[in-house]
Design a binder for these strands. Structure first.
Lengths: 142, 142
DNA sequence: GATGCAAATGCAAAACATTTGCATCTAGTA
DNA sequence: TACTAGATGCAAATGTTTTGCATTTGCATC
């Protein structure tokens, strides 16, 4: 069961298993695209969850610290975006005109990461890749 | 001469060639790593340039719009970082503990970009890649 | 199941990054 | 040189994220 999953996930990282953390984790799991703290907050409000926006921020911070989540670039205005740091690599293609974000599948970086790790002695735990350009519709209208 | 370079660069993009823009462009050219608006502002203050922080923001915005610069992720607290969008790909390796940023050379993405462009009909103008991990020193201390 | 403690949360206020309105100035053009 | 659109400075406004503090809750221990 889901809830047991996350319970173990949290305790492995030394985190208490709270309802709010389960909720935020759940939203991130469902999300196809990176979300802002506010996106998550509003999304949970719709489901009648009553947690505060600052709690969402605190939960996201700690998820990032524990490497459950990645803090992403600044696509949507200036709000930070967050996504799950699971093995299913999620990369994105952002339209510079309409700001639409689209997922890109597969990822050419596994080998690259290994090479960089060897060259720099970093231990590499993840990466983010964003591609920029213009989507088909915006190309027409420009 | 440098200045003539940038004059043409600006007029090509329909931008006036102002002293402030030259200065900001210059700082970005020298920079090994992405900079925040404030970094640039402070850096120019040291050289006795007297432009305002909001001008720096406005210049960066327009550089991004004209694809002279890329607006980067949120590594340093929550401030956006900017770097030149020149052909010399600059990718970065960020230490999740001490936040140090190190450059990574070469880039495995040229072919990948072409494939994605074909699959999605986007016209791709650039990309950003960041690798995360722990630097050698921080690995020792953890 | 009850108890205690550290960690998590809500709320409001603070801190910080970025944008904007408006008056003034300046680069590029005729 | 004069004109005009665009660039800039300054201060105020906006939006995002963090923080202090009082209260609550999860979890380990009994």
């Amino acid at each position: 069961m889901r809830m047991t999953d996350s319970k173990m996930l949290f305790s492995d990282k030394g985190l208490k298993n709270t309802k709010n953390r389960q909720l935020v984790l759940g939203v991130l799991r469902e999300a196809e695209l990176p979300l802002t703290a506010e996106d998550i907050y509003l999304c949970l409000k719709e489901v009648d969850a009553t947690l505060s926006l600052s709690t969402v921020y605190r939960i996201l911070d700690i998820f990032v610290e524990k490497e459950l989540a990645l803090k992403a670039g600044v696509a949507k205005d200036n709000a930070a975006m967050y996504e799950l740091n699971d093995s299913s690599h999620k990369h994105h293609l952002v339209c510079l005109n309409c700001k639409k974000i689209q997922r890109v599948y597969n990822c050419p970086l596994e080998d690259f990461e290994k090479n960089v790790a060897k060259e720099t002695d970093f231990s590499i735990t993840g990466h983010r890749l964003e591609l920029y350009g213009y989507c088909p519709e915006c190309q027409k209208n420009l």
